[in-house]
């Protein structure tokens, strides 16, 4: 019986491994190989060895650090805001109101619409001379070039991200909220807990694991944000909105496959370290107790 259990344990992981390993591990090894080469479009089949030069060039130049800062700021703000708004929205959906299921579907629309289309549309909407947003701002007597000023451009990208991805966090957290055992809540109510206390000491601890999942995955996805930022600002003005993923793309676009692979690996390592950090901070303690 015991022996069978061990075999069975592996069996459960097997389907995912069979599908994921071939299509991920091989490309991954190729990327590591690319990152050690001077490999461009023109010498793709005849690259020269670079050793760690690509990595050294990255960390010794200003562009990597600038993008790290932009991405760091971007990811921190959007993930923080989206998780908080998502949580509030999920709590709000616990109340009774008319048309809940219809509004639930409507709130999902921003995540469903193609990011590339959203990008082009915001390019018009935020344009100084042709945009509805700029027009509304000018009525309010706010004189600002949304996409032309460094801080404003980055803020605009962050706001768009929050607008698009809050529903995602909402959905994740709402599902978690729905599995909080009702008996626990009722018991707490009977004990005379205030609403705040109920949330802070009963619901939040129960929700923490699922919030952690939301934070980890939104962090990873926010690092990868590309489509609409690239379409709207192209990383500009200057490098004000050049996130790490845009920098990766710019190297790839220049045909410098070696540098873009090296940068991808650096980003990958950082994301994993960050996830482990979140994980040990928020979940591991809890996991041990259950």
């Amino acid at each position: 019986m015991r022996k069978w259990a061990i075999n069975r344990n592996n069996l459960f992981l097997l389907p995912s491994l069979i599908i994921l390993i071939p299509i991920s591990l091989i490309p991954f090894l190729i990327i590591i190989y690319f990152s050690l080469l001077n490999i461009y479009t023109f010498n793709f089949y005849n690259p020269s060895w670079a050793g760690l030069n690509n990595f050294i060039n990255l960390v010794s130049g200003p562009d990597f650090w600038n993008s790290l800062f932009v991405s760091g700021l971007y990811v921190t703000v959007v993930v923080g805001a989206e998780v908080i708004f998502g949580l509030l929205l999920a709590l709000f959906f616990n109340y009774n109101f008319y048309g809940k299921s219809v509004l639930f579907v409507i709130i999902m629309i921003p995540v469903i619409i193609s990011q590339a289309v959203v990008g082009y549309m915001f390019l018009i909407m935020l344009s100084d001379m042709f945009g509805i947003v700029s027009y509304i701002l000018s009525i309010l007597n706010v004189k600002i070039s949304i996409l032309g000023e460094r801080a404003a451009a980055l803020a605009a990208m962050i706001l768009i991200d929050i607008l698009i991805w809050t529903p995602y966090c909402f959905l994740v957290i709402y599902a978690g909220l729905k599995t909080v055992p009702s008996a626990v809540l009722e018991a707490a109510k009977i004990d005379g807990a205030t609403k705040y206390k109920l949330f802070r000491y009963v619901m939040l601890p129960l929700l923490l694991p699922i919030i952690t999942v939301a934070v980890i995955f939104r962090t990873i996805d926010a690092f990868k944000t590309f489509d609409y930022v690239y379409i709207i600002t192209g990383g500009g003005p200057g490098t004000a909105t050049t996130t790490l993923s845009i920098l990766i793309y710019k190297y790839f676009d220049s045909g410098n496959i070696g540098m873009s692979s090296a940068l991808s690996l650096l980003v990958l390592i950082m994301a994993i370290l960050l996830s482990r950090l979140y994980y040990s901070f928020l979940v591991s303690r809890r996991w041990q107790t259950t």
């Binding site: 479009t41 023109f42 990383g235 490098t239 220049s254």
Partner: peptide, 22 residues
């Protein structure tokens, strides 16, 4: 030249930095 396309892409990068005053 085979190197021209990548060079032009780097020009885009640095001209943008110049125009924005970086």
């Amino acid at each position: 030249a085979a190197s021209f396309s990548p060079i032009q892409d780097r020009l885009i990068f640095y001209l943008s930095k110049m125009l924005s005053g970086e």
